[in-house]
Amino acid sequence: MEKKKKFEEKLKELEKIVEELEKGDIDLDSSIEKYTKAMKLVKECDTELKKVEEQISKIVLENNETKDFSIEETE
């Protein structure tokens, strides 16, 4: 149902990398590699959070079909 990695997974991965970096028992080369990866994830997560324009809201019908749903319509 989803192609891209879930946001929470990304954040967890980021946390893991940062913790590994902080442990300090890795050499400089791997540190730089991990840092690059961390910065990529930071940027991705940040962009993902900031770019979101419209919150996706659907209503699910009995036959599992989904339609856009917004509370304004119902008021």
Partner: peptide
């Protein structure tokens, strides 16, 4: 707003 909601 990043998440999707499904109303049943």
């Amino acid at each position: 707003p990043l998440c999707e909601t499904y109303l049943f």
